[in-house]
Design a protein around this nucleic acid. Structure first.
Lengths: 252, 252
DNA sequence: AGTGTTTATCGTCAGGCAGACGACTATGAT
DNA sequence: ATCATAGTCGTCTGCCTGACGATAAACACT
């Protein structure tokens, strides 16, 4: 196969972001409203073109910063700053996924603590955190009584894949701590698991499990009562990235 | 961000394949020799351009058929034919990964039984199965005394990621059966795990585990003695894709 | 001050699974 | 016949998990 520069079709390459966070006991994703056709006015995942001199991860980190102000947590830097976790998710390249032209989108998954408020070009009405079930639900009516409009393009598929990745990855990695602030309690971490998996977990067994898994959590010495009740010990994420043995997601 | 068709840089999009098989107790990958610059004469992963009207998975399946004659096993078709398992791996888009132009490569992972002989354009000397440690080793000299030449482009990274994916995925899925012929024995399946993980497994515990995992294996009723020793029961892959509980890879 | 509520944390117990390993079976090779 | 090879069935012990009782330390009432 000789390399004739005119022998291959040109593609547009974009990055799309599945940005997940946990708010009010629910797993939420960042959605932005489209300002132009196609799918004008519909909600979509944030994203944009990859620039000529950019790596894919750089492009994703840039888009993440533009949309949320979050700095991406560089996996090469072991320091746990307040940056978000960012990883490549999958690539979507159906010839008809964008009606205008051939676009290949490299989707990325970002996990962030609750804190940041969305900002899309400074216009808050064009960006929001929405529960993923709401964004993924098909047909019917939302909580506000409005009919549910599906996400633009194939973004429902991308979001679904991102959520599934997050759900499975917190089983065997310490990724759930990416949803937490730098210091957090065991109960806060448990509520992350409960929100992402959509289940209730036994606080006693959960406490035993996470504090007994080497490298998962390191106590900071401090305590907090911000959740009410008895003061809870504060922890930071330990160095371990792979949990052994893994957390077990309850069946069915 | 308005959609100006001239506002984005054009990319070439390719698919690269990590085709793995188990031969002679070793995990092997398909490598092809490059006929043109850059990296002329070096070994590389098979791959090629995505065509204008092709989905990414279609392009990968087409390349796989061209290089090996294997039909891809469509995940939508639950029938277990003798096609290979094929899944998307990751996408590589460093601006400098190809010195000629901006190329984004969507790597795919394929798993195949031992049977097929490589064929790259009918020329056997330009395609071979090589043990992955040999392809990934840096510096030094190979078994033939020749100095080790690394794979072209970033293909060592891609191969490494593909091998890691395979190693982890046979833990919690029935993917290891993709390395086996349609009918196989417990011992043959065990040798797959041993080759992919590079460890020795206890035959008795392995037998208990795989035959006790619901949906993993279904007996065909036949037996074989092709491995020597006492005749072994033959099995086909069961319907289960996710193993619960998973196979456990020995530590360290 | 006492009582209730909330959350955190420690303990106990039974069942299940995994690793280590002994024993037996059924074939082919010498 | 004997050996080598590979497959299959059991046993035992330790660890982990799920279910759940009990205690601890805060706050909000009254």
């Amino acid at each position: 196969m000789p390399y004739d520069p005119s022998a291959f079709p040109p593609f547009a390459v974009t990055v799309d972001l599945v940005v997940l966070t946990v708010r009010r006991h629910a797993l939420c994703a960042l959605a932005v409203r489209r300002g132009e056709p196609p799918f004008q006015g519909r909600w979509a995942l944030p994203g944009g073109f990859v620039r000529a001199d950019e790596d894919l991860a750089q492009a994703a980190a840039r888009e993440l910063a533009e949309e949320t102000g979050l700095r991406a947590h560089d996996p090469a830097v072991p320091v746990q700053d307040n940056g978000a976790h960012l990883e490549q998710l999958a690539t979507y390249g159906d010839p008809k996924r964008d009606p205008r032209m051939r676009v290949v989108s490299v989707a990325h998954l970002a996990l962030a603590p609750d804190l940041p408020a969305p900002r899309a070009g400074g216009d808050a009405s064009n960006a929001r955190w929405a529960p993923v079930e709401e964004l993924l639900q098909q047909g019917g009516y939302g909580r506000d009584g409005e009919p549910v409009v599906p996400l633009a393009f194939d973004h429902a598929q991308i979001l679904s894949d991102g959520v599934e990745r997050a759900r499975s990855k917190i089983e065997y990695s310490s990724l759930a701590t990416a949803f937490c602030p730098p210091e957090f309690t065991v109960g806060e971490l448990r509520r992350v698991y409960e929100a992402v998996w959509g289940v209730a977990l036994d606080p006693r067994n959960f406490h035993r499990k996470v504090t007994g898994t080497p490298g998962f959590l390191v106590p900071t010495g401090g305590t907090t009562t911000r959740q009410g009740g008895r003061p809870a010990q504060l922890f930071r994420a330990g160095g371990a990235t792979l949990l052994n043995p893994p957390m077990l997601r309850p069946e069915v």
